[in-house]
């Protein structure tokens, strides 16, 4: 019980430290607005151009809210591996190791303390913008506890990986390369990894694909013109391929912007 109080105190002290510079905290939260705004605009263009109401099972509203949750997590957590790496390099470890607590749990408490305020602040900022552009979240209120649990588990998983990478600093000079590998792996598993943005869309559409494109264009009141436009007439992409390609392109641009 006493130990729990110790780690709670570490968590609350970290949260206090987070608030030490209100302007910086405000700026960090404002960046969430920028990211959600950019992605919202990119996805709205993607959905409009593709003419599809849903891509891979996500409609625009779901896509935006998915972004709000994932960006809230990724922007609210600290780079624990970097903290440990710096402690090893600077020798500050002499202080942190010479205390009567568990070193990993101390970092976990610090990590959670950092997320304690950043998480709701970022979520409120992102959710506000999502409400404005995409409407209310497409979930049943009964699902919210499950979402909260999923967010908590995602944070814990991210911490566990960050800690493991950080501890490599005891053997390796620089742990950034391991984090880089982890980051790219999460891109792949999270769906951000894609064919090159310059890859052409799939060709040789089936007749049904062409019908689908034409019908979607008609729905939007477009007329076929003789002016060559993308996709070129000689290589009309399948509607699914085109929408996937457009989506990936927007993602990559957005990722580059966010980076």
């Amino acid at each position: 019980m006493r130990k729990l109080r110790t780690y709670t105190a570490v968590m609350l002290t970290t949260a206090q430290s987070w608030l030490a510079y209100p302007l910086e905290a405000f700026a960090r939260t404002s960046f969430m607005l920028v990211v959600i705004f950019v992605f919202t605009q990119l996805w709205s263009v993607t959905f409009r151009v593709s003419g599809q109401s849903s891509i891979a099972g996500y409609d625009f509203r779901r896509m935006v809210w998915y972004l709000v949750f994932t960006e809230t997590i990724s922007m609210s957590v600290t780079r624990v591996f970097d903290v440990i790496d710096q402690q090893v390099k600077s020798g500050e470890l002499a202080y942190t190791l010479a205390k009567p607590y568990s070193y990993p749990l101390f970092h976990f408490a610090q990590f959670m303390g950092g997320a304690l305020l950043a998480l709701p602040a970022n979520f409120l900022a992102g959710a506000g913008l999502a409400l404005l552009f995409a409407g209310p979240p497409p979930t049943n209120p009964a699902a919210w506890p499950v979402i909260a649990l999923a967010v908590l588990l995602a944070i814990c998983l991210h911490f566990a990986v960050g800690l493991s990478i950080g501890l490599l600093a005891f053997w390796f000079e620089d742990t950034n390369v391991f984090y880089w590998i982890y980051q790219k792996t999460t891109f792949v598993l999270g769906g951000l990894s894609c064919r090159s943005a310059s890859s052409p869309p799939p060709c040789a559409p089936s007749p049904s694909d062409c019908r689908s494109v034409r019908s979607s264009m008609r729905r939007r009141g477009s007329r076929r013109s003789s002016t060559p436009v993308w996709p070129p007439a000689r290589c009309s992409p399948s509607s699914a391929g085109w929408s996937r390609w457009a989506a990936w392109r927007q993602w990559c641009i957005a990722a580059a912007c966010a980076a």
Partner: peptide, 11 residues
Amino acid sequence: DSFNLLAHVYE
């Protein structure tokens, strides 16, 4: 604040 935290750390 650091003193308060250390008080918790050293129980």
